[in-house]
C-alpha cells in the first residue's frame, strides 16, 4: 500500500461493478429529479386550487396534474425498488469477491500444506538413516574407548618404568623402603590371600620387573 511503483489494478470484476454502480447512479439521479418534479407539481396544483376555489374539480388541468403526480409517484416507487435491488446486487458482488479471496486463501494454504507434507514423505528413510548413524556412532565410541584403554595400559607401563628409574636415580628411597615394607609385610600375606586373584598376580608381575631392571 502506498509504495512507489505499485499501480492499483482495475480488474474485469471492477469494470463489472462499475457498470452496476453507474446504473445505480442513473436511478439515483432519476429519483432525485422525480422528487423535485413531484414537489414542484404539487405546489403548482395547490396554486391552481387556490386560484379556482369553486370549480377546481372540473378543471381538467388540475385533474391532469394530480394524475401526473400519481404516475410520477408510482414511477418513483418502482425506481427506489430497483435502486435497492441494485444496491443489494452490488453488495452481494462485493461479498462474493471477498468469498473468492477466502477461497483463494484456503487453496493456497492447502497447496502449501501438501508441499510440506510431501517433504515428510521420506521421513521413514531419514529415521532409518538416523538410526544407522547412531549405531555407527556407538561403534565408533566403543572403538575409541578400546583404544583409550590401550593408552591406559601404556601409561601404566610408563608409570612402572618411571618408578624403576626413580629407584635407580634415587637409591636412598629404596633404602627407606624396606623399613616401611617391613612394617607392612606382616599383614600383607594375609591380605593377599583374602583379596582377589588379580592382586597377587600384579605383585608377581612387579617382582620380575624389578629383577629386569637390576639385570640391565
Amino acid at each position: 500500500m502506498g509504495q512507489k511503483g505499485s499501480k492499483i489494478k482495475i480488474t474485469e470484476t471492477d469494470r463489472a461493478v462499475l457498470e452496476l454502480k453507474r446504473s445505480k447512479d442513473e436511478i439515483h439521479k432519476f429519483t432525485k429529479r422525480t422528487d423535485q418534479l413531484i414537489s414542484s407539481e404539487r405546489s403548482e396544483l395547490k396554486n391552481l386550487m387556490k386560484e379556482n376555489p369553486r370549480n377546481y374539480k372540473e378543471n381538467t388541468k388540475v385533474r391532469f396534474l394530480l394524475k401526473r403526480i400519481h404516475y410520477q409517484e408510482h414511477l418513483l416507487e418502482r425506481a427506489s425498488d430497483q435502486l435497492i435491488n441494485l444496491e443489494n446486487m452490488v453488495s452481494t458482488v462485493e461479498f462474493k469477491l471477498i468469498e473468492a479471496h477466502f477461497l483463494k486463501g484456503i487453496q493456497n494454504g492447502n497447496e502449501l500444506l501438501k508441499k510440506l507434507n510431501r517433504e515428510f514423505k521420506n521421513l521413514d528413510e531419514i529415521l532409518d538413516d538416523v538410526q544407522e548413524q547412531i549405531a555407527y556412532q556407538n561403534e565408533i565410541d566403543e572403538t575409541l574407548s578400546h583404544s583409550l584403554a590401550g593408552v591406559n595400559d601404556y601409561e601404566e607401563e610408563i608409570d612402572r618404568e618411571l618408578d624403576r628409574l626413580n629407584k635407580e636415580v634415587n637409591p636412598e628411597q629404596t633404602i627407606k623402603l624396606p623399613s616401611t615394607e617391613g612394617l607392612a609385610s606382616l599383614p600383607e600375606p594375609v591380605h593377599k590371600e583374602d583379596l582377589k586373584d588379580g592382586m597377587p598376580s600384579q605383585k608377581v608381575e612387579k617382582v620380575p620387573g624389578t629383577e629386569a631392571v637390576l639385570l640391565s
Binding site: 461493478v17 462499475l18 454502480k21 439515483h28
Partner: peptide
C-alpha cells in the same frame, strides 16, 4: 479497494 463512481462520491446518499 472498491470501485466507486464520482457521482456516488459527490452526490450519493
Amino acid at each position: 479497494n472498491q470501485v466507486v463512481t464520482l457521482y456516488e462520491l459527490g452526490e450519493g446518499d
